[in-house]
Design a protein around this nucleic acid. Structure first.
Length: 224
DNA sequence: TAGGCCATCTGGTCCT
DNA sequence: AGGACCAGATGGCCTA
């Protein structure tokens, strides 16, 4: 996680409005004396705490077989029950066994599909950096997606920054050349290693190596 | 108790 | 026709 701090994780942390703070709140430690703790809010935002697997994770895959659908058993989620009232008058309630078993198989398929989706989300959670601690609630689905998106953007920025640093170290090798599209798929704006501030001693220092304004110095680049 | 998140069921639509 | 995908509806669980 050190790299996250060094790179500045604003973009990574900036979840969409409504999901940032709420996602933080959702990261509260359950039953902990530490009190509410932001899932991503700690240590200037670079300290990621994730959650313990909630009941949802456990319920995934615990479901009954295809023949024991919620419609029959009322397992999890009352849609089957509630709709049973509706359906009794028409749809499934009086449907022949054949259509009923068809409905059950469709339900099972949909359940499987959602489980696959959740597995994929778990896989995503496992590769985005946040604390995978049993004491903290896991990321919600929406927070996972937003966090992953920002993480990807941040990695793209880091890549460009590294490239520019390498060019800088090689002194004057295509410092101002734009990234090839293949290396900059996200169209990110330039990243300055000096954090957007003028290089101390700019412009003398900037021109010391290359004899021209440095592409690494925002101050130089901002000049008309 | 309200709100957030989730799993599930369901019907509709599109694709193969 | 069957499967995948989607969105709406519903109820359960958990936390503040």
């Amino acid at each position: 996680m050190a790299e996250l701090k060094s790179l500045g994780s604003e973009a990574y942390l900036a979840l969409a409005p409504g999901y940032g703070p709420s996602a933080f709140a959702y990261g509260a430690v359950r039953g902990s004396a530490e009190g509410p703790r932001g899932a991503y809010a700690g240590a200037g935002g670079a300290d990621f705490h994730a959650g313990a697997l909630g009941k949802s994770a456990e319920s995934s895959g615990e479901q009954s077989g295809d023949e024991e659908d919620g419609f029959e058993t009322g397992v999890k989620g009352g849609a089957g029950f509630e709709r049973e009232g509706k359906l009794k008058g028409g749809a499934l309630g009086k449907k022949p066994k054949e259509q009923r078993s068809l409905r059950l198989s469709i339900n099972a398929r949909e359940r499987r599909r959602m489980h696959d989706l959740n597995d994929a989300l778990d896989g995503l959670r496992s590769v985005i950096p946040y604390a995978h601690s049993p004491s903290v609630r896991k990321l919600s689905k929406i927070a996972t997606l937003l966090l992953a998106k920002n993480y990807i953007l941040m990695q793209a920025q880091a890549l460009e920054e590294m490239r520019r640093l390498v060019a800088y170290l090689n002194q004057g090798q295509a410092l101002s050349a734009p990234l090839p599209a293949t290396l900059n798929p996200f169209g990110q704006s330039p990243v300055y290693p000096f954090g957007g501030a003028a290089v101390p001693g700019c412009p003398e220092k900037c021109t010391a190596f290359t004899g021209a304004a440095s592409a690494l110095c925002k101050h130089c680049n901002d000049k008309p």
